[in-house]
Design a protein around this nucleic acid. Structure first.
Lengths: 109, 109
DNA sequence: ATGATATATTCGAATCTTCGAATACACAAG
DNA sequence: CTTGTGTATTCGAAGATTCGAATATATCAT
């Protein structure tokens, strides 16, 4: 049971382990319900790519789709995930110095 | 700046997107400071594998190492990450029905 | 110094992820 | 039914991750 819970958590983290998907989740957190068109225009990514990322989030039930005629609107299933992102922002800020070093290291390989 | 923050978050999620690493983080959350030996014995993984996973967590500064003679003791750098795991456990429980369906689907490919 | 113990690193194969390109599907308008 | 618009899926290449095996390093004990 602990194992299954860890698999579950790892799956959620995996789904969030991508900057574009984080941007999607943040957009949904901030705007509520958003169409795919708005998502890929706002984030400046290909439509197909947006759909792929949304599929990942959908498969983990992080996100819920609602069809309205032609378009599909997505929303977060649970605001807990928005809270997780907020926690991480605080974490980032409270270790800002080291965090920015980390980022600098990332950018100079 | 929003971009960098998202990269940072994605990096953290990436590091946590693995059941073994989650088990390590939970062990550190529960026991405080733990040697590598205790980690790989408790989790029943190879010593080298434990070191590899610890390296991933170290590179993201999720974990801090302290050398004491022969051995190395690890601890969580910030309890925020324990809190994130707790949030996800609640999330899991509050959607238990669907979550267990998800797991069942995972197991029957 | 030698050997033993604890931890870390490197390597390679298998597997998974990511993106754009192409294509498919669903619905609406005419 | 045809055309257009919005969304989803499939495919393949490039890159990343994962594991165990082998090896390296560091420290302790003799």
């Amino acid at each position: 049971m602990g194992d299954q819970l860890r698999e579950f958590k790892a799956g959620i983290f995996q789904a969030l382990a991508n900057p574009t998907r984080i941007a999607i989740v943040e957009l949904l957190r901030d705007e509520g319900e958003v169409s795919v068109a708005r998502i890929h225009e706002t984030l400046k990514i290909e439509q197909a790519n947006a759909s792929q990322h949304l599929a990942v989030l959908r498969n983990k039930s992080i996100v819920i789709a609602r069809k309205d005629g032609n378009q599909v609107f997505y929303r977060l299933r649970d605001k807990v995930l928005g809270q997780v992102l907020d926690l991480l922002r605080k974490y980032f800020e409270s270790h800002l110095t080291e965090a920015s070093e980390m980022l600098a290291d990332l950018k100079t390989p």
